[in-house]
Amino acid sequence: MSVDKDTVRRIAKLARLALEEDRIEPMVEELNGILAWVEQLKEVDVEGVAPMTSVVEQRLKMRDDIVTEGDNAKALMANAPQGQDHFFVVPKVVE
């Protein structure tokens, strides 16, 4: 399988990554280089093998549903590129 320019535009859109028009063709080549290389996995017989999702053989732990760290809005806002009071400010999304 390989990608074309439209596919690269589509995945860039999905990834919310602006890609200038003159960067698309080189990216097609770079991605196809990597995809051609991972094609080798096709030759492995994976019939009946369960996919591995975690190397830790333990159930996810549950914790009590309680507030552990509250009232730290100020600290959370400290790194905001743009904020007002305790709100993150973004361009208008509703007309």
């Binding site: 399988m1 690269v8 990834a15 990216m27 991605l31 990597i34 492995v44 093998v49």
Partner: peptide, 28 residues
């Protein structure tokens, strides 16, 4: 580059061929 590869192998229509297969090879 890696974000785009990752988005592609997780996208509809390619998930089984790439990501799921890789997870099975990982088990092996």
């Amino acid at each position: 580059r890696r974000i785009l590869i990752g988005t592609y192998v997780l996208s509809a229509g390619y998930y089984d061929a790439y990501y799921l297969r890789a997870q099975k090879v990982r088990a092996l």
